[in-house]
Simulated assay, not measured.
Amino acid sequence: MGWWQVDADTLARGRFVVSPLCETISSLKVLQRHAPAAHPGARAWLAEHLPAFQELVRADPLTPLLLDAAFRPHWNADFITPTPAAEGGQSFEEELAVLRATPPEQVRDDLTVALGGPPPPALCRPDLAERAADLVEWVWRRTVLPQWPVRRRVLEADVVARTAQLSRGGWAAALEDMRPGLRWLGGDRLQINTHEHAPRETSGARLLFVPVGFDTSWVSWEGRHRYAVVYPCAGALAEPDRPPAPEALGALLGRGRARVLVLLDAPRSTTHLVALTGLPLGSVGRHLKVLLDARLVRRRRAGRSVLYYRTESGDVLVGSQQDDATEDRAPAGTGAAAAQSR
């Protein structure tokens, strides 16, 4: 297995950061593999942007070669996934400048490691880092930037939830279910994946954990100074547009509690609810307790996660209020179809 030796001081200085470049690389990986996404919002995002991306790839023979060589099944070429700054907070342009400035010899070395042998002659060119940066910038401007305020809130909500887990249960709890193959082995060992790699000594380095919106993950490091684990956040990246909780339901339960109940039309974790509502983790927990006591929701364990979902009584309560709200909005004599046509 691949693991890092992490002493107590390094772990204590570990922190969660949000990186617009990592979010863009995650989006690029999803566009490259164009596999069906599990979440409806992610499927809608892919359907919207995949045709333009595929046209871009077809227009330049170098692009598919670059993507295939840079993103391998078990390893990325390191130059295309630079490690975020230790303090976080960099703009996309600042992060992209690091990728763009990668020396040609380092690009070739990184591709050789990823491919397990020399890269194709077409990729042995001095401007390959520039070409890769141009592709990443296209993905940012076309597919990520329009959503970035929403995405950033989702990622920050995950950071808040993970930090709360850290304060309650230590790093073992905060790392739980973060990414496949990642787990705390005890002592000073952090398993980062299940591949056979030599252990890496991280003493004195800054250890970073970086959430991204899609189901992608990787690790990276900058010399012996910074190490990063990029992991898929627990919240949904792009939830389909939902109407607000009905006013009458909000008056009955309180706005926040009503919002939580409406969102539990499908099983969701507390972290997911934090990401979707923007409420603090403690507030979501209190709302769930009241809803549980009122038997409007139930919970069940799925692996290491606890998921909450509406009971039949909860469905009836939400459904009746939503039906009433629809009728109130429809002009007399026009029916629901007229209301929907607006």
Rank of each mutant, 00 (worst) to 15 (best):
G2Q: 09
D7C: 03
D7F: 03
D7S: 04
D9W: 08
A12Q: 14
R15S: 12
V17H: 03
V17K: 02
V18K: 03
S19Q: 04
L21W: 08
L21I: 06
E23N: 02
I25W: 08
I25D: 06
S26R: 07
S26N: 09
V30L: 12
Q32T: 13
Q32F: 12
H34D: 15
H34Y: 12
G41S: 09
A42I: 05
A44E: 13
A44W: 05
A47N: 10
H49M: 05
P51G: 11
F53R: 07
Q54K: 09
V57E: 12
V57N: 04
R58S: 04
L62Q: 08
T63G: 08
P64T: 04
P64S: 08
L67N: 07
A69Q: 10
A69W: 10
R72Q: 14
T81F: 01
T81D: 01
T83I: 10
T83L: 12
G88E: 01
Q90H: 07
F92V: 03
F92I: 02
E94V: 09
A97N: 00
V98R: 09
R100V: 08
R100G: 06
A101H: 00
Q106L: 10
R108V: 15
D110I: 00
T112W: 10
V113H: 13
A114L: 05
G116K: 01
P120I: 07
R131F: 05
A133P: 08
V136N: 07
W138Y: 02
W140G: 02
R142S: 11
T143A: 15
L145Q: 15
W148F: 11
V150P: 00
R153C: 07
V154A: 13
V159C: 14
V159H: 08
V159W: 11
Q165S: 11
L175A: 05
E176N: 09
E176S: 12
M178N: 02
P180H: 05
G181S: 08
G186K: 08
G187M: 03
L190E: 02
N193S: 15
N193W: 02
T194M: 06
H195S: 03
A198Y: 05
P199Y: 00
S203P: 00
S203H: 09
G204Q: 01
R206H: 05
R206P: 00
R206T: 04
F209Y: 05
V212S: 01
F214A: 01
S220W: 00
H225F: 01
R226P: 01
A228K: 05
V230D: 03
P232N: 13
C233Y: 09
A236F: 12
A238T: 09
A238I: 06
D241E: 14
R242H: 09
E247S: 10
L249I: 03
A251D: 10
G256P: 04
A258R: 01
R259F: 10
R259M: 14
L263N: 13
A266I: 13
A266G: 13
R268M: 07
L273M: 10
A275H: 04
L276W: 14
L276A: 15
P280A: 07
L281W: 05
A294W: 07
L296M: 11
R298Q: 15
R299V: 12
R300W: 15
R301L: 11
R304H: 12
V306F: 14
V306I: 15
Y308P: 09
Y308A: 07
Y309T: 15
T311G: 11
G319M: 06
T326K: 10
E327V: 10
E327N: 02
D328L: 08
D328F: 03
R329A: 11
P331G: 10
A332D: 13
A337G: 06
S341C: 02
S341M: 06
